[in-house]
Simulated assay, not measured.
Amino acid sequence: MTITARALNRSTLARQLLLGRERLGVAEAVRRVVALQAQQPGSPYVALWNRVEDFDPERLDEALEQYELIRTTLMRLTLHIVHAEDYRAFREAMETTLRGSRLRDPRYRAAGFTAEDADALLPGLLEYAGTARSGAELRSRIEEVRGGPVEAVVWRMIRQYAPLWHAPTGPPWSFGTAQSFVTAGARPVLTDPEAPAAGLAVLVRRYLEGFGPASVRDMAQFALVSQGAAREAVRLLGDALEQREGPGGTVLYDVPGAPLPDEDVPAPPRLMAMWDSVLLAYADRSRVLPPAYRKHVIRVNGDTLPTLLVDGYVAGVWRPVDGGVEASAFEPLPARVWDGLAAEAEALGALLADRDPRVYGRYDHWWVKGLPAVETRLLPAR
């Protein structure tokens, strides 16, 4: 069975709960979409608002406070929110990437630390963090054990490598500018050489459930692992996966029985969160993001702007401003689409009003630098 590019788009939207908001609890919604990008504290809330019917942000607060959902460094070396039950396998899947990029970083070694130093330090540090500790407390603990000051890069690399969960410090969102950490409740195995391969097989299967069908290159991009490691995960999964042909003869893998909606199913307009995973989860990002717009949406430093999703594809960007949402379209949009975006903006305004109406205000400089908009409208918030 050959799958068209548009059918792949609709598959992504269906599995990411973007063909229609669904009535789900926040924990189940996160499991369905696999993971939420979370380096910007407000983005998981906007992401779930796009996907969950009658989304209540307090339910997300509660799930994070109770560590039913957790925030930690995982795929692509960035902060994600995942279900606590997924954490151990996902973290084991990322062990090789995290260890190589953090404990083998030349800046880390130049500061006088080695991977072996970190291995010796971690047991005591994790015991100390059995109760939530501030970043300052954990850094001081490292300095106490080492007998002197450590450079900022050492603390950064250790906190990103260690199996630590972020402890909520909000408001207005669950995580504020202050940082606090607690040892992971589901401790991953970091010393077994077979654990990363087994964990990656779990992660690949979950990825296909939430983002498939997908190629080996897509899997590798999603997790930031080598294509060889992704191929090994596919081999380990064996008959648990099925193979399809994608555009241009690309070999795609999928889980049997996963949604494959008709390519003509309508897709409603959405105001997508900054760094939404659908823009970053594939090597071929044209599945959702037209190549002509990529450099305007994913900026040179990696900032991934909040986007207008129209008929399932990025058609512009948006930002919160005084009085509502400023929507900038990269292409002409019909009146009915603007009406749909206006309705979304009104509802989003209600979500943000009690939290942070200017949730992405610190990124206004990208708009000051200019964007290729053919039309910009102020969509009033409620």
Results as ranks from 00 to 15, higher is better:
V317N: 02
W165Q: 05
T191R: 03
G147C: 01
E22S: 12
V265N: 01
A214F: 08
Y293F: 15
Q37N: 14
Y363P: 02
R270E: 12
A223Q: 01
Q160A: 07
S180P: 05
D303G: 00
V278S: 12
H365K: 13
F55Q: 03
L203G: 04
M219V: 13
L371C: 11
T2S: 14
V288E: 08
H166G: 06
T12W: 10
D339G: 06
E232T: 02
E62L: 15
N301L: 12
E143H: 04
G25Q: 07
G170H: 03
A342S: 14
L77E: 11
Y313N: 12
A335C: 08
R244D: 04
A167H: 10
L36Q: 08
A63E: 07
T250H: 02
S215R: 03
A132W: 06
A281P: 00
A381K: 01
L279W: 07
P261R: 02
A292Y: 08
W338A: 09
E194M: 04
T307G: 10
S134V: 06
L333S: 00
D56R: 12
E375Q: 14
D276S: 12
E143K: 00
Y67G: 01
A129G: 05
S180K: 06
T12R: 14
V300D: 15
Q227C: 10
V154T: 11
L138N: 06
P256H: 04
Y282T: 00
I142C: 09
M157H: 15
R235W: 13
R32I: 04
A38V: 15
R10C: 09
A162E: 00
V82L: 10
L271R: 11
T72S: 09
G210R: 09
L348T: 03
T12L: 15
V314C: 10
R102W: 11
L48P: 07
S43D: 09
R109K: 02
F175C: 01
D354K: 13
